[in-house]
């Protein structure tokens, strides 16, 4: 029983980790309608930034958020403005896919060029301290991630529901042409949304860097799972991404423990393929047209 609870707790912690990485991705996916294959590399950049800033300033890694998140906002906004926006009118999806795949390849190798293939360890800042909750143990950093993920979901919901800009973002996602006719500058909304999505992953990076070693390929490791989470949760659904992440976290944790750690990915991707093929709108999505964001 105790083992079961521990595996359960591990699954939830892993789920929180996937959630915080996926929220930005689903936001971009749902609103800009672009599959950002470079999303993982934004995470990687964020983790390296955390590593570097922590080293330079000698501050607690969590404090780097005030630098990392704005920088990633700029990186995301620039990506949208200079790479995606010129391709928005492209006749086919493959053009945008290749653009972000190219960006991903370039960023991974840029990191390799600057930091080499060796891993970079950000100081843990006490975030690897075990915390006992009843019969299970988790790391304090993991709890932070869970809290941050929940806060992010609620915060984005409020932003999208209650503010004029948030409403404009939803309007653009639901009906781009009609939004233009309301006087909304659609391109600016896209740049803003891409920026926010990247800033979210910046937040994730500062929380993850103290727990996981950083390497040029770390993004690839996370991003495939993030895609699974986003599809599972229903594209563009922030709440769905959170729940989807928990589901994937649990599948990963339980299949790793009960089936074999080397086959975890088969379980996760198997679920992904089943969902994609049987219910492409995701477990919590409403329709395939991706035209809505339900906060």
């Amino acid at each position: 029983m105790e083992t079961f609870l521990q595996v359960l707790a591990n699954g939830l912690m892993l789920g929180a980790l996937f959630a915080i990485v996926s929220i930005g991705l689903t936001l971009i996916f749902g609103i800009v309608k672009v599959v950002n294959f470079a999303h993982g590399e934004f995470l990687m950049i964020g983790m390296y930034l955390t590593f570097v800033v922590t080293g330079w300033l000698g501050i607690h890694p969590l404090y780097t958020i005030v630098i990392v998140a704005p920088l990633l906002f700029l990186a995301g906004a620039a990506t949208q403005r200079f790479i995606i926006q010129p391709l928005m009118s492209a006749r086919d999806d493959h053009i945008q896919i290749f653009a972000t795949v190219g960006l991903s390849t370039a960023l991974i190798n840029l990191a390799l060029l600057i930091f080499g293939a060796d891993i970079a360890n950000t100081p843990s800042g006490g975030l690897r301290t075990p915390v006992e909750i009843g019969p299970v143990r988790v790391l304090s950093g993991q709890l932070f991630i869970l809290i941050a993920a929940i806060a992010l979901v609620i915060g984005l919901r409020l932003f999208l529901q209650k503010t004029q800009t948030g409403r404009a973002i939803r309007a653009v996602a639901q009906n781009r042409a009609a939004a233009q006719l309301m006087g909304i500058n659609v391109n600016r909304i896209y740049v803003l949304t891409f920026g926010i999505g990247a800033a979210c992953v910046g937040l994730a990076a500062t929380l993850i860097a103290p727990l996981y070693p950083t390497s040029p390929n770390i993004g690839t490791y996370f991003v495939l799972t993030a895609f699974v989470v986003v599809v599972l949760g229903g594209l563009g659904s922030i709440g769905g991404a959170f729940v989807g992440a928990m589901v994937i976290g649990l599948i990963d944790s339980f299949s790793g423990f009960y089936i074999g750690s080397d086959l975890r990915e088969v379980a996760v991707f198997g679920v992904f393929l089943l969902i994609l093929i049987l219910k492409p709108s995701g477990l919590f999505g409403k329709s395939l047209n991706l035209s809505h964001v339900s906060p």
């Binding site: 404009a168 639901q174 009906n175 009609a178 006087g183 339900s294």
Partner: peptide, 18 residues
């Protein structure tokens, strides 16, 4: 061309975005 997942009120408010 309404924003179909937004309420009628929200639709009207978007109308006065100008």
């Amino acid at each position: 061309q309404l924003f179909s997942d937004m309420t009628v009120l929200e639709n009207l408010l978007m109308g006065s975005y100008r």
